[in-house]
Simulated assay, not measured.
Amino acid sequence: MTQQHGKKIMIVTAPANGKRFCGETNYYEQLLTAVANSGGKGYVFPLDKNPMDRKGFYWDAPNRRWVAAFCPIPDIVYNRYPFKIRENKLACKRFFQWLDDQHIPCFNTAFFDKLTIATLLKNDAVLSAHAPLTEQLRSLEQLRRRLKKYPVVFLKDIHGAQGRGIWKVVRKGKSYQLHSQRKVFPSLTFPALSCLLQPVIKQRTLLIQQGIRSLKTADGVYDFRVLMMKEKKHWQCIGTGIRLAAHGGFTTHVKYGGKAASTNAALLRPPQAVVAFIGRHVGRLLDASYPHIREFSMDMVMDRNRQLWIVDINSKPMSFDENIIQQKRIRKLVNIFLKQGV
């Protein structure tokens, strides 16, 4: 067993045009500084076409600069590779297979499959009550049937992330509205709606998800982002952030105008004990299907009856704007890296 001091941590990400690597640079700077302060050594490795080159960077905290370096064989790998489709390509597969062959622990090993997650939630006796209907969209007739049952549905690209590849469809009487992230198509007949969506359905693998009449402010909808982490075999709720959509928006992602709510905003919050209970149950469910998970986040909404719904689960959570949550996350990651392993 490698001793805590001198333990080598590798953060895997991807190359980026015009930058050293993809990802949240500030997060990695803070994380690797905390690793170094606890006696470890950390590197960022942009996984490229030649994964065995191991050309990466370390963070020189005293001089606040990234330094190019050859990454030594790590003791543990933190997978932050940001591209879902490319993660399944040969170069990535070769690298992660090499880690497995060398018995080097790695978390989280891959993106979650959205349809698999939806099926797991639907089939669980506890979590099914918090799971909106979610299924693969195979035809326009299926869309018509679901819109007869639900006044709002969301269409989600199975490979989408961070708000990309989401459409909202609203039934209003005998007409429909189609919302993309940048445009609204009002007063559509179903044939007109079908013409707009047909190319998307042909080119992408989509899920259709029941829309929830969630709580909103005068400006728009808001939801909850919950961070869960596993320490010493137990899942813990690290914190819950509130995200506000842009005025007229339907998702709370920052790229599309979403923002974190202030801690003193007068918004109805879910009971933290209930959120933690749901999160722990989700964690145990994921453990049975995905190896080596140590963190995930849930996007949740609360309807007007104060029922909580899970609308998405993310295997590689982005940084939290709430500093108290993010710093607690970093402390726990360092403890996992240097003391517990995967």
Rank of each mutant, 00 (worst) to 15 (best):
133 L>C: 03
34 A>M: 05
242 I>Y: 12
36 A>C: 02
268 L>K: 06
72 P>N: 01
107 F>I: 12
329 R>L: 01
213 R>I: 00
68 A>Q: 13
78 Y>A: 01
334 V>W: 01
41 K>F: 04
33 T>L: 11
330 I>T: 01
29 E>V: 00
105 P>Y: 06
47 L>R: 12
48 D>V: 00
88 N>R: 15
236 Q>S: 10
210 Q>R: 06
76 I>P: 06
40 G>L: 01
61 A>C: 10
68 A>D: 11
191 P>E: 06
323 N>P: 08
127 L>P: 04
37 N>D: 11
172 K>H: 09
217 T>C: 05
309 W>H: 04
251 T>S: 03
307 Q>A: 03
4 Q>L: 02
268 L>H: 05
309 W>E: 06
288 A>P: 09
233 K>N: 15
68 A>H: 12
117 I>Q: 09
308 L>M: 10
17 N>F: 13
230 K>E: 10
314 N>W: 09
103 H>L: 07
223 D>F: 01
143 L>Q: 02
314 N>A: 12
231 E>A: 04
199 P>I: 06
7 K>G: 06
44 V>I: 15
219 D>R: 07
332 K>G: 02
44 V>H: 10
270 P>Q: 00
262 S>V: 01
260 A>I: 03
70 F>V: 11
60 D>C: 10
187 S>P: 02
224 F>N: 05
101 D>N: 14
272 Q>R: 14
269 R>L: 12
307 Q>G: 00
112 F>M: 03
178 L>F: 07
217 T>S: 14
326 Q>Y: 00
16 A>Q: 15
63 N>A: 11
245 A>D: 10
291 P>Y: 11
98 W>K: 09
